[in-house]
Design a protein around this nucleic acid. Structure first.
Lengths: 349, 349
DNA sequence: GTGACAATCTGTAACGTTTCAGTATATAGG
DNA sequence: CCTATATACTGAAACGTTACAGATTGTCAC
């Protein structure tokens, strides 16, 4: 009956990962005190605080995530939700790096939550919310009336969207100014004498479709050019389809002498289609394209390009989510990035 | 003094997420029994087991990850460790999707652990291992003598490498057969009359550098062609540098009439460099390139390409790690993928 | 010397899970 | 009828953390 209290402390100096108990043992303090000292609670003596923090640093103490998560519900996780087949390749890579960059010196981890073909985009969101798997969520492929944003807004879970919604609801977002992109593209094409323009737009269901389209048509009437409809394909279509449709279009009597393309890979297809029809880029037709990495000018010197920085988008989105988690007001966490360093430039003939 | 026992059960039917306690309350069983019934433990009656599992399914019970992790140490997390600036773009995206595909119907989550410029590649690994943040790890940019693999092998944490090591240690890996790629490339070039070949190799420190180089030189002597050294740059160099060096090389007296390139983006730069020097692809020189998405043939019809499937690599790597976690022997979890559907084909003049 | 009060520190309980060491109940063996 | 033994279930403890409700000092006013 007398051996029960000496063994109670469980060899707190053991070789496993240090815990609060280890620290308590080493400093001679209680676990509670150590816990509070580490988070600068006010009722801990200044010297004690310093002492605890010193020891903690020395032995490389790191709070156990599972312990914190179980006790507080805080996961220290940001989830990036991605569509497995429709997402642009460079987007995935750059946005991940952008997010990483921002959360690097925070306790946050980035988890990637994919959803695949034919699955309801709401599924992964429901999963995350129901299982409380993340403190914050980043979604892309945002729609004007986005059920995911609505859902998360209702449950009060912090999130940020890549692209805006149009539901009269306020939430953090980061968006590229596709309206500005389209207008600048059209103006530039008009400036070099192009009059009949076609737009390879984003898929209709996404918000930036209308942004792009509005910019395109507004600028068209501003410069007095006309539109050659090209809405049987979007940037979501396969390379082959876009190529084929472009070739078809270019063989018509009234064919475009200028293209505006919302994605780099699609632009490759457009150019291929143009050349399939026996026409020449820069002579018969000019193409302005968005790109996210500086490669299109290697493809064809004649291409006119505008840069969209996905890495920046990732960083901005991460900042927004963290801001919301940190208590900032959602309305203050919205940002729009202007077409940067418009590289559209035509080499002299 | 009498109100203390009735409230003890904590309103287990409450509206929060269902827990084992909720299930225990609903079935009238003990928490322990429910826990064991859910995992098909032998000492639970057949009917009880079915009943519990039915109720669990009905109310959508999902084990709390933090609870499991705290109790058992199992994180149900696979970590993909990536270099933030050197990783190939399409690699990141495809490998993530490949991994996702495999872990989709497992309880595993994918977390991305980045490391950046000038940081010791061992840092993120140490972090993961020390904090016990993952049950399994996937690394890329594998070196012949890879400290990361050694480290994880020592600590007994399951991992898989993209690319092989050469340390006499056995561990799961997935690799593309770059030796075969290089030999096939050289043979093909020789077949169309090319005699002086240059190789744009992977960075020397990575294992697949020597695989590629060996395949290249072995095939060179086999076909009796000669090498034009081009080792001042690797696929890790910037587009601009590769372009410039290529142009320099092509202006020399003895210049290559064939290139083998280990990466698609680098190939763009090589072609640009060739054209900078006033030469023509397909006439003065041919280029064989690896690619991971089917875009290079759009860039220049004359390009000869071999496909490497990163999505497959991701899936294979995930399977390996899960296999190791599941108790399989590391030696049985190695795979090598052959150059698939070698598209190297020369359009007739 | 007593009471009040601030300043510091501490034990206990709880988050949800699994494991350990049982406790009942029934069945069979002698 | 009593003891073994298998079957089916259960409570308590523990993983590491934080919140709550004290507990122990010392200081100061009166």
């Amino acid at each position: 009956m007398d051996r029960d209290q000496t063994e109670k402390d469980d060899e707190a100096s053991g070789q496993g990962r240090p815990t609060l108990k280890t620290l308590a043992f080493m400093t001679g303090l209680g676990v509670t005190t150590v816990s509070r000292a580490l988070k600068d609670a006010p009722e801990i003596g200044a010297e004690t605080r310093r002492r605890v923090q010193l020891v903690a640093k020395q032995i490389g103490y790191r709070p156990n995530r599972a312990g914190v998560r179980l006790r507080t519900g805080k996961t220290n996780v940001i989830s990036l939700v991605l569509n497995t087949e429709r997402e642009i390749m460079s987007f995935v890579s750059d946005i991940i790096y952008g997010v990483s960059e921002v959360i690097a010196d925070t306790p946050y981890h980035l988890i990637v939550t994919p959803y695949s073909r034919s699955q309801d985009p709401l599924d992964p969101i429901r999963y995350l919310v129901e299982t409380g798997s993340a403190d914050g969520v980043i979604i892309s492929r945002t729609q004007p009336n986005d059920p995911r944003a609505r859902y998360m807004l209702e449950r009060g879970i912090p999130f940020a969207t890549h692209g805006r919604t149009d539901m009269g609801l306020i939430h953090p977002y980061h968006d590229f100014d596709n309206y500005a992109f389209a207008t600048e593209a059209v103006r530039h094409l008009a400036g070099i004498g192009r009059r009949r323009l076609a737009l390879l737009a984003p898929p209709v269901e996404l918000t930036y479709h209308s942004h792009t389209l509005n910019g395109f048509t507004d600028a068209l009437s501003e410069v007095g050019a006309s539109e050659i409809p090209f809405n049987t394909v979007s940037v979501d279509h396969s390379i082959e389809q876009i190529r084929m449709r472009t070739a078809q279009l270019m063989r018509r009597d009234v064919r475009p002498d200028g293209f505006v393309s919302s994605a780099a890979a699609a632009t490759l297809a457009i150019v291929a289609g143009i050349e399939d029809a026996g026409l020449k880029l820069g002579r018969d037709v000019d193409v302005v394209s968005k790109q996210s990495s500086d490669l299109l000018h290697l493809f064809r010197r004649e291409l006119l390009v505008v840069n969209e920085n996905f890495r920046l988008a990732g960083a901005e989105l991460a900042r927004s989510v963290l801001g919301w988690i940190g208590g900032a007001t959602p309305g203050s966490l919205q940002s729009l990035s202007k077409p940067t360093g418009v590289l559209a430039y035509r080499p002299p003939d």
